[in-house]
Design a protein around this nucleic acid. Sequence first.
DNA 1: ACCATGTTTCGACCCTAGCCCAACCACGGT
DNA 2: ACCGTGGTTGGGCTAGGGTCGAAACATGGT
Lengths: 244, 244
Amino acid sequence: MVAQHVARDADIASVASLIADPTRAAVLTALLDGRALAAGELARLAGVTPATASAHLSRLLDGGLVTVASQGRHRYYRLTGPEVAEVLEVLARISPRPAVRSLRQSRQARLLEEARTCYDHLAGRAGVRLLAALVDAGYLVGQDAYELTGSGETALSELGVDVAAARASRRRFAPACLDWTERRPHLAGALGAAITQALLERDWYRHGASRRVLEPTELGRKGLAAMFSGKELTCSTPVTQARE
Amino acid sequence: MVAQHVARDADIASVASLIADPTRAAVLTALLDGRALAAGELARLAGVTPATASAHLSRLLDGGLVTVASQGRHRYYRLTGPEVAEVLEVLARISPRPAVRSLRQSRQARLLEEARTCYDHLAGRAGVRLLAALVDAGYLVGQDAYELTGSGETALSELGVDVAAARASRRRFAPACLDWTERRPHLAGALGAAITQALLERDWYRHGASRRVLEPTELGRKGLAAMFSGKELTCSTPVTQARE
DNA sequence: ACCATGTTTCGACCCTAGCCCAACCACGGT
DNA sequence: ACCGTGGTTGGGCTAGGGTCGAAACATGGT
């Protein structure tokens, strides 16, 4: 007697098995900031030999989770798209938070919780606070998906956000995304990405050592404080700058 | 030399590995309608012996993907919550659509595409059409997340939807959810669930043989046509009723 | 032409994890 | 108190897949 209802669903097990391996998960996580990385770099980040990494990348490629671009003798891998990043984010939401072991890791964890990119938009405490501030200021209205008000459009344009381009994109405009660490929403979608880009271009935030971590600059602290009349958006007592 | 940046993220690999096994994926999919099923029933659905299923369920339990309730000599398993269902749904979105093999499977697939539950709300072509109709009728406004208009509140209340309860729920009220098969949004969240419940209670839709499939009744066709002044919401040429 | 660097392929090893069978435990009914 | 059914546990088998070293392939620089 065989299974009565053969699942006629998509084959989620095959995709899940691609993410299920710790090495591949590390690779995907490393790509979570949306940038393209070379195979060797990914091997190093994941802590395996190039041979092993290559095998994994080949499987991820087959599964359509990553795409590759050859450039000279390098091969740059990147996530196929936001859908893949979303899967990783949603998985993280129901994954056990690992116990912190070492001081170095604990610092890393705190940095990630404070401010990071979630594929291409600001997440973590800073992301949650930013969304709250934008709503408080009357720049955004809505609940789970937001719309820009007139004053919001002006304010963001002044910041250097290309609102028109964000609107023209085929992506959802300004959906909320439940933050993985904060369990409260931050701003995602085309607008979230555009704002984050502007923050980086203005040098209000900078990529940290681990790339996904974002750190506010002095300029950024002041700029944000001015923009939202003194609301505390950045971590006032910066995480101790231990260098390893 | 060990990995340079040990990922300080959640351990997504462990959760993914729980979903990665075809048998466990089948079990989770079977639970995707939100109901609680007995261990033996799940074993039968997944096509394995009770012993095997028990081992799998035990792992899913450890991983927090399912919860269990003992009732007499039965043990009823259910998904832990909507977050788990969301993971499965999002995974399905980037999973390869399996090639249809047999006629029986093709029928199943068509039924699933036409109308099904997505955890606890209507999905598939019918779900997408329903959302479009609700927006067209001016009952819902918004983009990625919706709000109920005055006329919408009246209309849905008449249908037997408990809008107040849906609003009181801690869940997001009326977010859009990108449909896995249609790639267009259907209505999710507390309101989506409440509407679906009302449709079932009114006997406008009934559970199909495979439980996740929903089929409109004659009453439902007429009711929906009247409610939306003739818009075609249900499949006019019903899928051929082959009985195996 | 040659070498150095980055990447993939091949072969071999090991180990995890899924499967079933059989026995055991738990609960209900008679 | 006894059986029958539903469920879990332990043992043994097997297969699939992750790992690395060595070698082949590709590209760029000298």
